[in-house]
């Protein structure tokens, strides 16, 4: 299990890297809390007009809003996870250093991003969520099994989220500038993950479509598992399916990139 220890060390490093910046974490907690409050009141106004929108009652809508804030940086829904570093490394040619190491590029970045995600969940996720639970009425499960099932769904969501962002980052091997990709990923991420509105609130067929895209595995699935709206196994199957597809696509793109493309810079 030599390589297991390596990737565990990489994940631990990813965790500690983010833990270093305490002021940034504090600012993030503040931001997510403020946004949470704004979003909750928006949802309350909306659900007042349209009760049971998307099958959620008001407490469920509030729960969903706070969960979104808790998972926002954990899943790097808007981007800004390990893929940001990877993009920069490809653009500057630093990637050369990663390539001559006896380690797998994708596993390396996955481990690093999971370390980051776990830190963001503890650092920027737990506090806003607890704040929400203390000051608003939320639909939280009473049994430990559902909480555990929820955490498994979050872990799978982390992998799917990485899978999407890794593909985006590898585009940098062919592009000179990351702005287009970053902006597109940001808009798709916010909208298709259900950061603006829960995906089940959208009318069909549009609602069906967004709920079958990989972004739905990020926020919608863990939320549904937490609130008992879907069977955990159904959620896991959906998430794991996308995780496999995305990671396999990442692997293909990675081998194409490293074989064909110039490592930039002298």
């Amino acid at each position: 299990m030599g390589s297991g220890r390596l990737y565990a060390a990489v994940a631990a490093g990813g965790f500690r890297r983010y833990a270093t910046y305490r002021a940034a974490t504090a600012a993030g907690v503040f931001t997510n809390t403020v946004f949470g409050i704004i979003l909750v009141y928006t949802y309350l106004a909306l659900w007042d007009e349209r009760p049971h929108l998307g099958g959620y009652d008001q407490t469920q809508a509030v729960t969903y809003a706070w969960l979104g804030q808790a998972l926002y940086s954990t899943l790097a829904i808007q981007g800004g996870g390990a893929e940001k570093d990877l993009m920069a490394r490809i653009r500057t040619g630093e990637i050369a250093v990663d390539l001559y190491r006896p380690a797998d590029l994708q596993l390396w970045w996955l481990a690093s991003d999971l370390g980051r995600a776990v830190f963001q969940m503890l650092g920027r996720g737990v506090i806003p969520f607890t704040f929400g639970a203390l000051f608003f009425s939320m639909a939280l499960p009473q049994d430990i099994t559902t909480w555990v099932a929820f955490l498994v769904a979050v872990a799978l969501a982390m992998i799917v989220s990485f899978g999407i962002r890794y593909l985006a980052a590898l585009m940098m091997f062919w592009l000179m500038d990351d702005r287009g990709v970053t902006q597109t990923m940001m808009i798709l991420g916010i909208f298709c993950s259900g950061m603006t509105l829960p995906l089940n609130a959208f009318p069909d067929p549009f609602g069906d479509i967004v709920q079958s895209l990989p972004w739905a595995a990020q926020l919608q699935m863990p939320a549904n598992v937490l609130m008992g709206e879907v069977s955990p196994w159904h959620a896991y199957a959906f998430q794991a399916g996308w995780a496999v597809v995305l990671l396999a696509a990442g692997r293909l793109l990675q081998s194409a990139a490293t074989r064909r493309v110039v490592v930039q810079g002298g």
């Binding site: 490093g13 500690r16 270093t20 040619g93 630093e94 250093v97 001559y100 006896p102 002298g266």
Partner: peptide
């Protein structure tokens, strides 16, 4: 990779934040 060592002066293999 196990048998060679590489130093690119203008790049670093070190973990920047740690």
């Amino acid at each position: 990779a196990h048998r060679i060592g590489v130093v690119f002066g203008q790049r670093t293999t070190l973990w920047w934040d740690l």
